[in-house]
């Protein structure tokens, strides 16, 4: 891991409750970092298990979870996007599994991915307006009043 921490500009290291460490990177380095983790002999990540987003109101966090069967370990990479203009680079060219993940995040959080062709709503219908998983998304349907 030392080579990796030197090579990239790691803003923060957060220890999570399950014992893993989350490396926070600036958004323009994420794609290179994932590419490096996939191709470096040190880590040689096999899979991009998932990409998830968390809405922190002013910022939107993207978390990439990679797995390396060589080290039998997970690595978590995170980056913060400005909520006013959430755009970042797509990682489809590195891992194809990112295609659905990025579509889902675009659909539910409104994050744009540069270099992702054929971006579309994945889970919500095409005519839906808004991004339901954002914290300020409220549902005006009166049947859901109890949902608060």
């Amino acid at each position: 891991m030392e080579n990796f921490t030197e090579k990239f500009n790691i803003i923060d290291k957060i220890e999570q409750k399950d014992g893993s460490i989350k490396y926070v990177l600036p958004k323009n380095e994420v794609k290179n970092c994932i590419f490096h983790l996939k191709n470096s002999a040190e880590f040689s990540a096999d899979m991009l298990l998932s990409i998830r987003a968390v809405d922190w109101v002013e910022k939107i966090e993207l978390v990439y979870l990679l797995y390396s069967s060589k080290l039998n370990d997970f690595i978590t990479i995170s980056t913060m996007l400005e909520a006013s203009n959430p755009v970042t680079d797509s990682v489809i060219s590195v891992f194809k599994s990112a295609a659905f993940d990025e579509c889902e995040i675009f659909d539910l959080f409104g994050v744009g991915f540069d270099g992702h062709e054929g971006m579309k709503r994945l889970l919500m219908p095409e005519f839906y307006v808004g991004n339901p998983l954002l914290k300020n998304a409220c549902c005006k349907d009166e049947r859901l009043v109890w949902n608060d």
Binding site: Q16, K17, D18
Partner: peptide
């Protein structure tokens, strides 16, 4: 009333299932 973030990894019949709670 926990604080923080944790993931669980479960080998489900249809592949790896991860639940991450923030």
């Amino acid at each position: 009333k926990p604080q923080g973030e944790a993931s669980s990894f479960v080998e489900a019949p249809r592949g790896l299932m991860i639940c991450t709670v923030t």
